[in-house]
Write a protein that binds this DNA or RNA. Structure first.
Lengths: 364, 364
DNA sequence: ACAATCTGCTTAAACGCTTGATCAAAAATG
DNA sequence: CATTTTTGATCAAGCGTTTAAGCAGATTGT
């Protein structure tokens, strides 16, 4: 609760001074004032370009020149103190280090925050509870404008108690039993987009390899898959969906089952599964997309774009998640209806899906 | 130079108040003091647990209780202001969004920073110059203790002018003509470790697929490769090293050339190349590691651990880079000799390398 | 020519906290 | 018992800003 816990004392070794010790005391507004022969108030007024302040052209120039000359920089700390609240937005993430996803959330959040004059205070918890608590404490002590609480995969979450002390929005996660603001990907829509890529190319027997682990994505994408089929007038066949662990090994392991089903296309729960699937398919001498069309999910840059052939998939809107999160936090956007806003997952088509050749031959 | 540029005015829509408007004014030290019937000074002393402050047990308890009761949190802004310098460390990265690497640097930097009571102010520039300038300005205005300037791949870099206004250390990059502190991976050592994995398994004809693009990694890893060969008494054969673009396509494209060389093992410039190489090899019916041993470089988690077979590689010490950067910045570590400290790249062995069967049969 | 208004700038209080200087009362000392 | 020391707490200045209020001098209106 108090800072003794969350911020330890510095342990800088005094015998090893920093490499480039900052010699000169930082220039303050006071010094600028003296240099320009005006009062601090005047300096403040020109620095902040106050609209209704009456400053003579001469004075303004003199101040500006002095500022340049002395290399003055406003002290945001002091500024924040007097204004009562800082221009910080906190972002606590559970897996910056282990996934590229968090990075995109950060990017989106930062871009949007900057637009509004805010700055990101980032904390990476790697799922560690105490670390998370400290991180939030630290942010609260810095009087952040609010906190973005984000998870690397879309899931329900508990809301840490400390969060309630400030404005916050859940990003890529949600709290089932609370009306906390949240922004998440629209899994149903994504599943539908993915399936539609296949449907549009004339595929009718489309498998879906779902994940074994329960998650909004598991249910949502399945629903989207079913929606797409229904819209296309294709009967849903439960035998065409099966589960596998959502990584390369899972995808690889699913091949055998898949081939029994006599399908022409498959929608994989994620890109990593698709990657494993590629392996299994190729090993059996099957070609993609000719013998099997495949679409993934996630659009993991390092992977999807560089598979052979490049993988058609559906992108998780991580950047947008971050951006929308801060808009929600600042009240720029307002949730329509439900407090959890869903963002679309845009399809990105590459070369792993071709026309259904079976269909072709049947309807020439 | 002034803040008008770097931080725009807020544009919060006043008609859409934040979702959970903070009602109560934040509790200040003053209120705690009143509540506990003591002076602010006293509260400050117990909050900060000052060693040489003489506070009666009763008073201390009373203050602590009041703090708990009122839910008081110290205001770090005020604290920083009076102490003159903040507990911020700035981290500007050029590619948080597009690579997982930056995430690990952040993680390492944060862990180390927290150990010393510092907090990370993160800015993602995605290589955009003006953004970078603003980011640094913003950090300077917040009176950061120093700045970590990091790049997502190891490379020489210019030092932005504004950086000179504070302490800074380059992370994963270096400035060729300056004595700026820097911390980078030891590419030579890495190249050597990678090659050694192969050498240890008895391979003698070892190819190296290097990158086409110039970089410290290109030269360093090649040197390491040569060092390893030399140490093993294997003559360096220039025909065994060739260049390719360092991604999956590059690796795939190199297969043909590779097979002409009659080698039993290959060291790829990075994991992505190895991934493409796998494809090419498999397509020709060759098996890994039996027909060809392969090692990569980078240890990209999403990829390396889940290839078929899992890829032996060498890890880039991104976490350590971040941590060491902070230590250098704070003066905890001191560079020995050169201002650019090099960190080891530890090998991580998986299943893509087997014993050299040719050697086996020749020396039974 | 006198009040009213405007212009350009300064004064001073406040923001929440830290800390060296002080001080009264209690305890220890001679 | 008078003095010194110790204990427990308060005072007040200051950190670098912002900003409402104030105040001369110049300009305008009548």
């Amino acid at each position: 609760m108090t800072s003794e816990k969350s911020l330890k004392e510095p342990e800088v070794n005094p015998s090893h001074p920093p490499a480039t010790p900052r010699t000169s005391h930082p220039v303050t507004m006071r010094e600028v004032a003296e240099g320009a022969g005006v009062s601090v108030a005047t300096v403040s007024l020109v620095v902040n370009n106050k609209k209704d302040a009456r400053i003579g052209a001469g004075t303004r120039k003199r101040v500006l020149d002095t500022i340049r000359e002395l290399g003055y920089r406003p002290n945001a700390l002091a500024k924040n103190l007097v204004s009562g609240s800082s221009r910080f937005i906190g972002l606590v993430a559970d897996a910056i280090a282990t996934t590229p996803f968090a990075g995109q959330i950060i990017h989106g959040a930062q871009d949007e925050a900057w637009k509004h004059g805010f700055v990101l205070l980032v904390a990476n918890t790697e799922g560690d509870e105490p670390v998370e608590k400290d991180a939030i404490s630290m942010m609260l002590e810095h009087k952040v404008r609010g906190i973005l609480y984000s998870t690397w995969f879309h899931r329900p979450t508990e809301i840490p108690a400390a969060l309630q002390e400030t404005d916050f929005v859940l990003v890529n996660c949600f709290s089932p039993d609370s009306d906390a603001l949240a922004v998440v990907p629209d899994e149903v829509h994504g599943g539908r987009e993915a399936t539609d890529i296949l449907v549009r190319k004339g595929h009718r027997r489309i498998a879906f390899i779902n994940a074994t682990i329960p998650a909004p994505a598991k249910d949502g994408r399945l629903q989207g898959y079913r929606d797409a089929l229904e819209a296309a007038g294709i009967a849903f066949d439960p035998h065409l969906v099966f589960d596998a662990y959502p990584d390369q090994e899972g995808g690889y392991g699913a091949v055998e089952e898949l081939l029994k089903r006599d399908v022409t296309a498959v929608f994989c729960y994620n890109d990593r599964m698709a990657m494993g699937l590629y392996d299994g398919l190729k090993q059996r001498g099957l070609s993609i997309p000719d013998d099997m069309a495949v679409v993934g999910f996630d659009n993991q840059e390092v992977i999807a774009a560089h598979m052979r052939p490049p993988l058609s998939t559906v992108a998780l809107p991580h950047y947008e998640l971050g951006a929308a999160g801060v808009r929600l936090l600042l009240g720029v956007d307002e949730p329509a209806g439900s407090p959890v806003v869903k963002l679309e997952c845009p399809p990105v088509e590459r070369d792993s899906v071709g026309p259904n050749t079976l269909t072709r031959s049947r309807f020439p």
